[in-house]
Structure formats: C-alpha cells, structure tokens
Design a protein around this nucleic acid. Structure first.
Length: 507
RNA sequence: GGCGCCAUCGUCUAGCGGCCAAGGACGCUGCCCUCUCAAGGCAGAGACCACGGGUUCAAAUCCCGUUGGCGCCA
C-alpha cells in the first residue's frame, strides 16, 4: 500500500477544543501506526473569526499532547508565517496556512470556469437573503436558484462596469447521486438535486471551506480524510468539485472516515456551558497529557477486549479506524479524572514533582527564588507520601501543605475530638521525650516506639496514633503517620509536639 | 423545513445470527486490608439490547417502519 497521508485541519477561531483534539489524535494515531505522514493545516480562511492567538493556542495544545506533525513549509523561513510559537514539528516545519495559498485556489477556480464547471454570480447578499427568507416562508429548502448560470454577456458586462465583484459558484449537477464509502459509516449516498450551486470563491477572492479543502487535499496528496461527523453532509459537495476538476481517479482512491461527535452531559454538542472544553484548560487544571490522550482515544474507539489503559506505543499499535464507533459519545469528566489518577500513580516521583511544582508555587507553598536541591528533595518526599491520593496536579498543594508549612493550621474538630480528651497532652509529652531519646529516627523505629508505648500503657494503638497525628499535622487524615514523621525529621517533629502541647495544655 | 447520520447498564463501550438468561471500564453500594485518608482486593446493584413489524430452526446482531437524539444546508 502506498504511504498514507492524513491531515488535521482546524480553523483558528478558538482554542484547541476537546473534540478537535480527538480528531487530531485519531489522525495522528493512524499516521503513526501506518508509518505515514501527519499534516497540520490551519484553515484560516474565515477572515473575521481567525486569530493569531488561536493558532498559537492550537499549536500549544498539539505540542502539549505530543501530537507532532511531519510536514509543511519551513516554519521559520515561511514569509507568511506570523506565528510566534515554540511549538513545531521535527525539522521545524509547518503547519500549512490556507491564507498563504490563495493563488492556488484562484488558479483552480479559473480552471473550473474555463471548463464550464463554475460561473460568476453577481447576486447581492441582500438579494440572496431575501430569496432564502421567501423559500423558508414557502416551506421550501433554502437553496440558491442558479439564476446567474445563464446570465447573458451583456448582463455580465453591465455588472462588471458597475464595479460589482462576482463570487464563483459551482455548477452542481441537477441529477444523479453522489456516493462514497466511509470507513466508519459504510456506504453513504446523497441526491445531487438537493444541493444548490454553492460558492467556491468569495468576492474577496478567498475560497470557501469546501473549495479550499478539496484543493489542499489533492495538492497535499491526502489519502485518508479523517474528520468529525459534522462534515459528512459536506462530503458530496467536495466529491463533486473533485470530479469537476478532473480529479476523479484521486477521489476514487480517497478514503473517508467520519468520526462520531463528542457531546456534553445533556446530549448536545460539547460547548463552553458544559465546563472545560479547551485542551489548555485541562492542562491548567492539572491533567497529564497522557491521561487526556488515553481518555480521548476511548471516545469512539475501542478494542475487542475493551482495554482501558494504554501506553502510547500500545495505543498506536492497536488503533484502527475500522474499530471506530458510529454513535456520538458523551464526554465523562469523572472517568477522565480517574484515568488521570491512574497515570499519576504510575508516574515516577521525580517527574511528578517537577510537574506539580508550578501548582505548588502557585499556591504559595514555595518561592521561586532560593529553591535549593534540598528543598526539592523534601517536596519530592512529600509528594511521594501523597502520590496515590493525587488525582490532579492541582491537588498537590493542599495535600502537602501541612508538611511544608511548619505553622500548619489545626482542624477545630480534630482538636476537639482527639487533643482535648483527658490525658492526651500528657501522653504526647511522654512520646515527645521518648522521641527525643530515639537514636535512629525512621518510620520503623517511630512505629515500634509507639506500639511499645501502647502495650506498656495497656491502651489501643489507635489511642497513641491518633493524638500523635493531630499533634504533628493538625488533622485526622493524611499519609502514613510514621512515614511522614520520618520525612519531617526529628527536629521538626519535636518542635511541632512542643508547640501543640503548649497550645492545648489544660491547666 | 429538507437531507444525512446515529440508537446495548447513569456514562464510555464489547458484541459483527446460535458461545449473551448480554462481557469490560468509570461512577455507585457493601465487605476485606488498615494508624486516618487513599490505593488495592472481593462482592453487589445497574441494560425487558429505543419501540413496532418482518426474515430465520435461531436476532442485541439482517431488513422495513416509527420515535428520539445529533449534524448539515445556515
């Protein structure tokens, strides 16, 4: 089989959307699995809605997710590239920008005009709007009636003289059907008669989405169009253009795969009102890219055995367009959260701590400056203690704050329940002295000390453990008591015990 | 409004005619482990396979219709 070539073609009209990321991911997975080429093409032909910031956000999102593209113009030498992003592919290439390819679209529009497959239309937007409204009122489908198809030369000259800029419309066949095989949907057919003479080139010379896609997919030798289900109804128009340009062989070999949509919890298209929809928001909330990738891969794709967790390589190996589902999937934040926890538990601590650092700094637990190696090692030890409890990187600060801050807060209820019971402070004073005398301060030695004490006093171990925990942490829950004490070290533990006893001593 | 696509536990899904009185995962409940919280282990509740007709010895699986959802034209 020839080398497969796929593309992800986002419009830079917003941030990288979760749905877009899923489409990008499936293209990427397919390309990597088939050892093919993955192209990133920015479809920036919507002059008013496209922004540079969106382009940057998309590139940042792709980079964070690790979805690297393979081809494009030299990123830094491309004169049309105004984007200042650090995100780039191997070899500093791409992405392609449609706005830097306008001459190409013009050329093929001319070709279509010459071959009689397209024509100039001078109808004013207001005129078209009126026609549309009338059609709606008459309960007819609002389609353009093709009145400019048969414009006489005199009329054309007249319009030209008046300075009217025409749009280029495609001569859609009024009969027959357009059909294609879709890898996920199977055989799909549309009646041509239902389609109108749609616009190829706007009066400004900028191509419509439909037209640019066709030209680019052809020129970029795309072999598989993998995109969202929302483009299914656009496909017949595009196929018609391919034929009009004489690229019938190309389109015959072109494979389509229309992926199911991602919906919000209420079953409507996933949007802002459903919460976080941009990839970057997930990053900022403390999700790991591996978790997001893994979760997204399961939205509309599965293996025969319903495997849930995949290493990246495993995912590439097992991915198949043929196994993509047809029905829309509702985005489930709970499952993503679980999956993130899975990846965090699997992380190595050093790595995890580095990733959590921005969140820890953000919370004010550490300062940027004077961050020594020892401090890092201490924070790392704290993270290790809480690792299995972390679901989001942003959870880290509140899980370790009592370890990092020596003047931690006492939980009122914990104090009432555990410290303000008769004998508690006395007991703690006793422990303090024993700890001070401990030759070796390790989790094991502290635990032995406490257990021995319980036996000696003939009380339950819990009666020792609980007060000790509240006295040294201010709370009733946390990591393994003896292990966090070891991490704190003898000095800090003694100071904390002293302070607690002094504060809550009953006279 | 027209056209297109879709339809299995609350959610993601397995299932491509008999192996399914429907399997896995998230979530939920209970138990175990345990210094607390998690994690982990075990068990459980949860789907008349949207509905109605066919086809077949046999249908969640094939066909038709209905309904609903989503999408495109916008």
């Amino acid at each position: 089989m020839d080398n497969i070539r796929v593309r992800f073609a986002p419009s830079p009209t917003g941030f990288l959307h979760i749905g877009g990321a899923r489409t990008a991911l499936f293209n990427w997975l397919f390309a990597r699995k088939m050892k093919g080429t993955f192209i990133l093409r920015i479809e920036d032909t919507d002059e008013v809605r496209s922004t540079e910031e969106s382009v940057n956000a998309i590139l940042r999102g792709m980079e964070w997710l690790g979805l690297d593209w393979d081809e494009g113009p030299d990123f830094f030498k491309d004169p049309t590239n105004k984007v200042q992003s650090t995100a780039r592919a191997k070899g500093d290439v791409g992405p392609y920008f449609q706005m830097s390819r306008l001459d190409l679209y013009k050329k093929y529009a001319d070709q279509l005009m010459e071959s009689g497959n397209a024509y100039h239309c001078y109808c004013a937007p207001e005129e078209l709007e009126a026609m549309r409204t009338r059609a709606m009122l008459a309960k007819r489908p609002p389609k353009y009636d093709g009145r400019c198809r048969t414009l006489s030369q005199e009329k054309k000259d007249e319009f030209e003289k008046s300075g009217k800029k025409p749009v280029v419309r495609f001569k859609t066949p009024s009969q027959g059907i357009t059909e294609f095989e879709d890898i996920v949907r199977g055989h799909v057919t549309f009646e041509n008669a239902l389609l109108d003479d749609f616009v190829l080139l706007k009066a400004s010379g900028i191509p419509t989405y439909q037209f640019a896609v066709v030209i680019d997919d052809y020129l970029m030798k795309v072999t598989h169009v993998v995109r969202g289900d929302d483009h299914l109804s656009n496909t017949p128009r595009q196929i018609l253009i391919f034929h009009g340009l004489g690229w019938s062989d190309f389109v015959k070999n072109l494979k389509f795969a229309h992926l199911s949509m991602i919906l919000g919890p209420d079953g409507s298209r996933l949007s802002k009102r459903h919460g976080a929809t941009s990839v970057e928001e997930y990053k900022n909330q403390g999700y790991l890219p591996e978790a997001v990738i893994n979760y997204l891969s399961l939205l509309g794709w599965s293996t025969e055995d319903s495997q849930q967790l995949f290493e990246k390589e495993d995912l590439i190996q097992k991915f198949a367009l043929e196994r993509c589902g047809k029905s829309a999937a509702i985005f489930d934040p709970q499952k993503l959260l679980w999956m993130n926890g899975e990846y965090i538990r699997k992380s190595n601590v050093d790595d995890l701590t580095k990733k959590a650092l921005p969140f820890i700094k953000e919370a004010g637990l550490i300062k940027d400056e004077n961050f020594s190696k020892e401090e890092f090692e201490f924070v790392k030890a704290c993270v290790r203690l809480e690792q299995e409890k972390i679901k989001l990187l942003s959870d880290v600060p509140k899980l370790i704050d009592f370890l990092v801050m020596d003047d931690f807060e006492y939980d009122v209820k914990a104090v009432e329940k555990v410290l303000k019971v008769p004998g508690a402070i006395g007991l703690l004073l006793g422990i303090k002295d024993k700890i001070a005398a401990l030759p070796e301060f390790t989790a094991a030695s502290i635990e032995k000390l406490c257990r021995d004490l319980a036996t000696e006093k003939n009380i339950k171990t819990g009666a020792v453990f609980h007060p000790l925990r509240v006295a040294t942490s201010g709370r009733t829950q946390g990591p393994s008591l003896f292990h966090y004490m070891e991490v704190l070290g003898k000095e800090k533990v003694l100071r904390r015990l002293e302070k607690t006893c002094a504060t809550f001593a009953v006279h």
